[in-house]
Simulated scan of single mutants.
Amino acid sequence: MTFKKRSVMAWFLDGFSTAEIAEAMSLGQAAVLQNLSRARRTLKQKLRLTDQSQPR
């Protein structure tokens, strides 16, 4: 997982809104949502909670 995805996930789990994360990291809110989605998908795959053959 990249540093950006990890950071977005950590901030989100600490209770920050996506708007707050976007402002703090100088990203657009859409970029924060995309990184959060990718971080969740990566985490699920690493924990083997999803079928990795599913389309992305």
Rank of each mutant, 00 (worst) to 15 (best):
V32Q: 01
F3Q: 13
R41V: 11
E20Q: 15
N35D: 09
A10L: 13
Q45S: 09
A24W: 04
G15M: 05
K46H: 13
R6E: 15
Q29S: 07
K44Q: 14
L27A: 04
M25R: 09
K44V: 07
V8R: 00
V8P: 04
V32E: 01
Q34K: 13
Q52Y: 00
V8M: 03
L49E: 12
F3S: 12
A22M: 07
Q54G: 02
V32K: 01
A10R: 15
K46R: 14
D14A: 12
F3G: 08
Q54H: 06
S37H: 13
E20P: 06
L47N: 06
V32T: 01
A10Q: 13
G28D: 14
Q34C: 11
Q29N: 10
W11L: 14
R38H: 07
W11P: 00
K46V: 09
E23A: 08
L36W: 06
A19W: 02
L36T: 08
L27T: 03
F12Q: 10
T2S: 13
D14K: 08
A39N: 08
L36C: 09
E23V: 03
Q52G: 00
M9W: 04
L33D: 15
L13S: 09
R48T: 01
A19D: 08
N35C: 10
N35A: 11
K5G: 10
P55S: 02
W11S: 08
N35Q: 09
S37G: 14
L49H: 04
L27G: 05
A19G: 06
T50F: 00
V8C: 04
S37V: 07
A22S: 12
T18V: 10
A30G: 02
A10H: 13
S26M: 06
K46L: 15
R38E: 12
T50E: 15
S17W: 03
T18S: 07
R41Y: 12
Q54T: 08
V8N: 02
T18F: 07
S7I: 01
N35L: 09
R40W: 12
A31R: 01
I21W: 00
R41S: 14
K44M: 15
E20N: 12
P55H: 01
M1D: 11
A24F: 06
F16P: 02
A24H: 12
G15V: 04
T50S: 09
